[in-house]
Design a protein around this nucleic acid. Sequence first.
DNA 1: AAGTGGTCTAGACCACGGC
DNA 2: CCGTGGTCTAGACCACTTC
Lengths: 240, 240
Amino acid sequence: MPTQSRKDEPAYKRIQSAIRQRIEAGELKPGDVVDSERELARIHGVSLMTARHALADLAQEGIVDRRHGAGTFVAPPQIHFNKLLSYTEQMASLGLAIHSKILFSGIVTREPEIAARFGLSPTSRLIKIERVRSAGDEPVALEVCYLPADEFSALVDVPLDRTSLFGALERECGVELAYADEEIDATHSDHRISRLLSIPGNSPLLRIRQLIFSTKGRATVYVTGLYRSGRHTLRIRRFR
Amino acid sequence: MPTQSRKDEPAYKRIQSAIRQRIEAGELKPGDVVDSERELARIHGVSLMTARHALADLAQEGIVDRRHGAGTFVAPPQIHFNKLLSYTEQMASLGLAIHSKILFSGIVTREPEIAARFGLSPTSRLIKIERVRSAGDEPVALEVCYLPADEFSALVDVPLDRTSLFGALERECGVELAYADEEIDATHSDHRISRLLSIPGNSPLLRIRQLIFSTKGRATVYVTGLYRSGRHTLRIRRFR
DNA sequence: AAGTGGTCTAGACCACGGC
DNA sequence: CCGTGGTCTAGACCACTTC
């Protein structure tokens, strides 16, 4: 008897897919009982250890909860904290109509401090995009983002007032974003920013500087954002 | 032959402990090879599956890296992001001498909005502690924290200018803190705060409001902090 | 080729939960 | 009580890395 099926996908993964599908299809809802190890072993014609592997793995991922002596149950949907979202995604999740006005879009070569964040030489060519972000009718933020020009030349021609930068990066350049390190502090507006955001001079602003890394661990985008106070509060979760 | 040793600790956990100890003792350093499944099975007198369980579990925790065909290696030390730290811990990690001045410490009963955050009735008794936090000689923050008075009456007598609140909670009350949900925005100082923090009027401030939960999922402490800009930048990591 | 982790079998006994 | 997950055995073959 073959120890493994001819398919190159391992048995335990096939079992996991089957369970995942039933959950995604709505056939199994949070709290519902999932087939036990023994049932899965019988149904899929595998040994107990294999069925167990499938379930233990899913439990580790948080897809199911296992309770000794009771059974395996569909876990409540996962809530992601500290999730990296584009401005577009954030506003969409709040159900707000958004709009961006591009103030500048082009190549700059004399931003040594920014270049250093990418680990590039001081006079490297960088794409710079400066945008006023609005939600509803109100301007809420001024965002400036930089990318290494040599890697992402494809982006210069993309109309960023219509499409999301995150989306364009993943679509046009095949870059998948993984995480961002952010520095957050408070500052105040100067004349230019007050005018752009339609706020009084010397208003408090939330400043967020983020360096976004790709799945390959490469620094890919640097963004500084100035957000109107009162219109924007950051929510995060910290763990002990 | 007994399928399990007489000890109530499972074999795979004993193997894990042995490996952990060797790492903590410095006998194994990051990058070093860990005993293979077969070696562990032989050494500890268990089957391959059990040795495997021990290693797979450690890999899941990020203690070791496993590379197919190559071996199991000690992983580089884990870096915690978005870690919940007390003010005391934060400053200690920066190597700064700290000091706190207590402005108020006592019981309040008319803070319905705070009480609501704990899921308590509007006139519940709350411990309130208001402190100016300094690093070096400079005041950097005004912090106000609240706790349900009935649960934490033991804390009223603790000298919080000398000991950390986190520490006192865990020591005196047996409460273990798990995570905090934070809201961060920008605001500006009024006369009182400017005086307390020795800053000009109308200076930008970073405001952090955190609701801290215990390991049992119970809202335990509510803290609002106002931080001088320039002296305090928040660092977090977000994930896609 | 030798050694490693990855998958898998066909059973076993134990500890726990709910009826 | 029965069914559940938790631990464990003593092997097996495969896929991969290193030499």
